[in-house]
Amino acid sequence: MPKTSSETAAPCTRIALHGPTMGTRWSASVDADGAVNQEALRRDLAFAAQQVDMQMSPWKPESDLVRLNRAPVDTWVDLPPEMLEVLACAMDIHRQSAGAFDPCVGALVDAWGFGAARDAPDAAAIQAARQAVPIPMHKGLELDRPAGRARKRAPVQLDLCGIAKGYAVDRMAAVLRQHGVRHALAALDGELRAVGGQASGVPWAVALESPDVGRRAARGVIELEDLAVATSGDYRHYLKVGDAHLAHTMDARRAAPVNNAVASVTVLARTCMEADAWATALLVAGPGEGLALAQRRGLEALFLLRRPEGLVELGLGRFAAS
């Protein structure tokens, strides 16, 4: 009798790999067969996450991002292809979102105490950032990907924290495939990407976090199979200044932290880089503009809105049934 596919398939073992990066931790749940070299896989996953951090961190003085920010206007700066890929995607989503996603907020991030420059808001720096003439990303930055370089066309300060973690997860997914892994879930903070489904044939179950300050609790479950998800919100990274609760995400149009009714936005996308950037854009855009933007762009998104009666869910795509 011929053997079935389940009889010929190599048995898989669930392994959990993880390590520190970007002020948090990367992780990967892998259904691996005996051909997978676990130590080599762990090493390469850690390198993938660390490489993105070394290139795009605003906190590391030697990073490529800091080099670009410090370079004089109209001076070409050689950059690695990975960072140019992220900058190109960031520029595209900046345009598509009408500026809601804006990586040119580095000065605002520092002024409000979320960057490397200071750990509390600075009134003079905030005023200076507000008085600066807003510059669209496509006018403030020029990319030359064939030559591997970029230059600022205006004195902008870039911050890629709204997209770099998602890209790091994509790099981890690529490493998993290079090692022959067909069933895995890569994660970094609130960004995740599934490589296939579980070896058992069911999708990966991912908890949708409730946007509660000071505690972690699941509000629901998302199923992923060859899909990425990212969440942006006002509840995890913030500063308390008196009675004010300042979210870490900047609204460049107001030159201030996001301050609207959106507690969190979760986005599904083909890549985690896109999901990460769009989640940030929709959080900034707010409940009305953000929902309309997501509808125009055909995004699958879930908004959790703070209302007097409690949290209200608004979903699009696969979230519409929520």
Rank of each mutant, 00 (worst) to 15 (best):
A292R: 10
A173I: 02
S5E: 12
R70I: 04
R254A: 04
F101S: 08
Q51T: 03
N69T: 07
G288A: 11
A116M: 02
E223Q: 14
A32D: 05
R42F: 06
A321T: 05
M137A: 10
V258R: 15
L282Q: 00
G214K: 04
P287T: 10
R270L: 08
S5I: 15
D110I: 12
E289L: 14
P80A: 09
A32R: 00
Q198M: 10
L141F: 03
H94N: 07
L311N: 13
H179L: 04
D33G: 12
A32Q: 01
T21E: 14
A71Y: 10
L185Y: 03
P11H: 07
R254I: 02
G166A: 01
D102A: 05
E39V: 00
C272T: 02
D53N: 11
R297G: 07
Q55F: 05
V30D: 08
M1S: 06
R43G: 11
V175G: 15
R216A: 03
H245C: 06
V195D: 13
P203G: 15
E7A: 04
G290H: 05
L160W: 14
P58G: 00
A128F: 03
M273T: 10
E309Q: 09
G197I: 06
L188D: 07
M172C: 15
G214D: 08
D243I: 11
L316A: 01
S210W: 09
S264F: 13
A173L: 12
L84E: 00
M250T: 04
F114V: 06
G201K: 07
A256Q: 12
A263G: 08
H94R: 06
L239C: 14
A10Y: 07
M83C: 02
D102L: 05
L45P: 13
W59S: 04
L291K: 11
A28W: 14
A10P: 09
V133N: 08
P80K: 08
R130M: 02
R296E: 00
P61R: 13
Q127A: 00
A187H: 00
L304S: 07
P308M: 06
L192V: 05
N260G: 11
E209A: 14
Y167W: 04
L84K: 03
L17M: 11
E274A: 10
A247E: 06
P308D: 04
T249I: 11
M83I: 03
G106Q: 10
V77T: 06
A49I: 00
L192P: 04
W204P: 13
K165L: 03
R118D: 05
A263W: 01
A16H: 05
A40N: 08
R171P: 09
V109E: 09
R43A: 14
G317F: 06
V258F: 15
L293S: 01
W76F: 14
L246R: 14
D234L: 13
G315A: 01
A150C: 02
G106I: 09
K3N: 01
A168R: 01
G288S: 15
R253H: 01
L239M: 15
W278G: 13
M54G: 09
V265K: 02
S6E: 13
C272M: 11
